[in-house]
Amino acid sequence: MPYQFTVSPDFTPSHLAGWFIFNTWLQRQMSEAIHLEIYHDFQAQRQAIENDQVDLIYANPFDAAMLVREKGFRPLVRATGVSGEAIIAVNHESKVDNVVQFDSAVKVAVTDAPDIQMMGMIMLEPGDLDADNVENINCQNYVLVAKKLFNNEADAGIFLESAYDELSSIVKARLRIIVRSQISVIHHTLMVGPRLFDKSEQLHELLINMQNNEKAKGVLDSLGFQQWETVDDEEMYFMNDLVDTLLV
């Protein structure tokens, strides 16, 4: 039975092919069958985790604690210099320049990416906005979040920074950023599950040396990464503690 690999569903569309290229490279290097399953939303992915159908995962920071505590996963590596920052943007014609200027109840367009939604909500708090007076408008992707802002169907939108950057210039011209997070310590992590523990050292060696090999470096390029760096248990615990503090 092949090992099961999955990727946090919040990857940017331009990197979808990159994950398949990475998986093909990984199978050749490991001489193991690894099936890459892409889930289109977090709920479906969590169900697969719950059913023990995942052995290797590029995990959202929000899910990392659950993977460690409930499923016994261990951290391997993270992409150097890549952190999931959030942006709050409004329609470019909005009169709001700062979250404190929002009305006492607002509609906010969001995707289901839990870390980005959490950080966005934290950035709305100084404006006395929280779950009690924010109505979430759920969108399948960030283009649809932008569309909700154009159409004045939402007062604000919460974006993953890298996804916002990838919006076309025409789209971005119709939006305005009012606040962006600079947290830097919350990141996605490649993690291994119990079925792969006996191969985790081999996997780790392969990954942290990718940038030293021309072909493997090309695989990293297709993911938009420069290199992988080790995430040890303590760093993982620290990030999980940090996320715990933000969940209230």
């Binding site: 404190v100 708090e125 100084p126 006395d128 620290f238 503690d241 940090l242 503090t245 933000l246």
Partner: peptide, 12 residues
């Protein structure tokens, strides 16, 4: 212990 501080609501 880990302590995380964020921007507070001015009303609070």
């Amino acid at each position: 212990y880990t302590s995380v501080r964020r921007k507070p609501s001015l009303t609070k």
